[in-house]
Nucleic acid binder design. Structure first.
Length: 603
RNA sequence: GGGGCUGUAGCUCAGCUGGAUAGAGCGACGGUUUCCUAAACCGUAGGUCGUGGGUUCGAGUCCCGCCAGCCCCGCCA
């Protein structure tokens, strides 16, 4: 309904100009704001939109809000084009002006939606070809080599994927980057251990399956802690790796490859696309970062470490806090890598990504780190004008006890196990239901439905919460059959698919559209809000807004479905109802798709 | 000590540039099925929006103080 609200706003502005342009000009008086303050109506009984400007203008115009509202309404009622769009406005309460869109206009919007694959959501810039549009880098997921993916990565992965999907749908070129931890001192330990226990792997990479890399990591760590000779070797190995010695690089590549294969299984299961560009990618660029900072005069050497001091942040001792870009031993750290990444991502195309907007989806605990690094990048002038660098933080995943999510024995929960459990629980639910209802379904159906519902539940539970707050993980809640959950939304879609199966031609051409029930209008109005929600998610990067919308849409549809027969009524009502069913299904499918959740025909 | 985030119904959470009587789900209690999948729908009960000030015609929302919880704070990411 963006186009309708824009049209309405224009007419309101014109009315305000006509009513108050003289009053707003008197010499010496401050200029009066003629912003109509048009917003969505706070309740359905107030209509579709409301203008709050009369209350705000009351003081400066020295008139009562209702008198001002009345002047505005008089102007609007004199405007024929306004009256084609809206019913005569109502003044209510202390001075709100309420607007109800004329039903013909709503039906016209419905017609447009029915033939629009994008369901009313415009491309960010219709005029520009895709390759001219700004590139957005979304940095998300980012697990560490040889470590288990856990729930923290799950949040980043799911939220990052959804944000990417929304931006892509709006027409941006999105670069989904997986900034994996594939470099660092831990590789000295891992490579030394590999050379020790599986030297043949270096000769014939396929010969040895390193098995569970997490176990491998743990064993290497144990050895490192216990064996001083091993420790010495591991440290030397780091140096060899950094020098680029063939054997060391080969071992490094082998370990990364093994890890990558494990990650990919998860990404495939979640249907998440990522371009891997790990920390090692930036190795050749690190010296340049330090040199550049030095050239800008930002660098200070403190206790042997090269730092940039930020005066506005303070440490424990009350002194300015440094961002360390080169350690006293000459090594680089994560701040250096992050700075190199920022520089590269905003860099012009052959040598960089040419990004217009760079988004980091990481846990809120890294907020300090990013604000420091971002500030350094700003000072170094690595962020071009009109470009944005944003940290999109999210809260911790907690168990139902409110503490950090762990297994009963206190270990980190493996992502693989968590997803499997969700699917397994969905399966148990489904089988119980099939049993209760005496339904017969084949194994393929059961497997497919359980997997879709289980994964959808995990994703939706995460996305439906405002990402800033900590999030309490509960299988029981996310898989619940009612409430704001994935199964509830999927079921609404299934109901429409059911109507189609029972003979409702959802694709039929519609001549005449007619509605006469409240539930029909409620559903239609909810459907028409879709475009606003998508634009809002794009701006605020809060997928829970989309979840909330889809939940409300499902509720509105379920009320409609409960009260309003579709197949058993006469034309043209039947076709009209089929048309909003179809738009509901399309909207749910598209909306869930933007959350990374596929729909089902039956469940 | 400094910084960040959070505090809304018994529980889990929404609340969009400040706007009309603060919303939803779960749980509790009560009702609905010869009809497109009841994985649904309807109703009832339940709140000094942590707290004290301030700004404003108007504050859950903005500003300041305080309290509580979580997270971060020089060579890990």
């Amino acid at each position: 309904m963006i186009s309708l609200s824009n049209a309405l706003e224009e007419k309101l502005k014109a009315a305000l100009e006509k009513a108050f342009s003289v009053a707003s000009e008197p010499a010496g008086s401050a200029r009066i704001s003629l912003d109509p303050q048009l917003v969505t109506a706070s309740k359905p009984e107030f209509g579709d939109f409301q203008a709050n400007c009369a209350l705000a203008l009351a003081k400066s115009l020295k008139e009562s809000p209702r008198a001002i509202a009345s002047l505005i309404v008089d102007q609007l009622n004199a405007d024929k084009s306004f009256l084609r769009l809206c019913e005569p406005p109502q003044i209510a309460g202390p001075g709100f002006i309420n607007f109800t869109i004329r039903s013909e206009c709503l039906i016209e919007e419905l017609r447009k939606r029915l033939i629009d694959k994008r369901l009313g959501v415009h491309l960010v810039d219709e005029a520009l070809p895709r390759e001219k549009l700004g590139t957005v880098v979304v940095d998300f997921s980012s697990p560490n080599i040889a470590k288990e993916m856990h729930v923290g990565h799950l949040r980043s992965t799911i939220i990052g994927d959804s944000i990417s999907r929304v931006l892509e749908f709006r027409g941006y070129r999105v670069l989904r980057l997986n900034h994996i931890g594939d470099w660092g001192t831990q590789f000295g330990m891992l490579i030394t251990y590999l050379k020790d226990v599986a030297p043949e792997a270096l000769e014939r990479p396929d010969a040895v399956d390193l098995g569970d890399l997490v176990v491998f990591y743990r064993k290497a760590k144990q050895r490192f802690d216990e064996d001083s000779l091993f420790q010495k070797n591991a440290r030397e190995e780091v140096v060899r790796l950094q020098r680029g010695e063939t054997l060391s690089k080969k071992a490094w590549g082998l370990i990364c490859h093994q890890s990558r294969r494990e990650f990919q299984k998860i990404y495939d299961q979640l249907d998440v696309q990522l371009t891997e560009r790990g920390e090692s990618f930036y190795n050749p660029l690190l010296h340049k970062v330090v040199n550049d900072l030095d050239d800008c005069g930002l660098l200070v050497v403190d206790s042997g470490a090269k730092c940039v001091f930020l005066e506005e942040t303070f440490g424990k001792d009350g002194k300015a806090l440094p961002v360390i870009v080169q350690k006293s031993d000459g090594g680089f750290n994560y701040a250096t890598t992050d700075l190199a990444a920022i520089r590269y991502r905003f860099g012009e195309v052959p040598e960089g990504d040419g990004a217009q907007r760079v988004i980091y989806v990481t846990d809120a605990g890294q907020a300090n780190h990013f604000s420091g690094v971002f500030e350094v990048a700003r000072r170094a002038k690595w962020i071009p004008p009109d470009c944005n660098l944003e940290h999109v933080p999210f809260g911790l995943v907690q168990g139902e006890d409110g503490k950090k999510l762990k297994t009963r024995s206190g270990e980190t929960i493996r992502l693989r196990d968590l997803l499997d459990e969700a699917i397994q629980r969905a399966k148990v639910d489904l089988c119980r239901r099939l049993d209760e209802e005496g339904r017969q379904e084949d194994e393929t159906f059961i497997e497919q439905v359980s997997a879709t519902v289980g994964l959808a539940a995990v994703k939706y539970a995460d996305l439906s919460q405002n990402r800033i707050t900590n999030y309490q993980f509960s299988f029981d809640r996310m898989l619940a059959l009612q409430g704001n959950t994935a199964p509830y939304l999927l079921y609404a879609f299934v109901r429409i698919a059911g109507i189609a199966r029972k003979g409702g031609d959802l694709q039929a051409h519609i001549d005449k559209i007619e509605f006469n029930q409240d539930e029909e209008w409620a559903l239609l109005k909810q459907l028409l809000r879709f475009d606003e929600v998508i634009v809002q998610v794009e701006e605020e990067l809060l997928p829970n807004r989309l979840c909330n919308y889809l939940f409300e849409l499902s509720q509105t549809f379920n009320r409609f479905y409960d009260q309003i027969p579709v197949l058993k009524v006469e034309e043209p009502i039947r076709s009209s109802r089929l048309a909003i069913c179809r738009l509901t299904a399309d909207t749910l499918k598209l909306g869930l798709g933007l959350l990374g959740i596929p729909t089902l025909e039956r469940m």
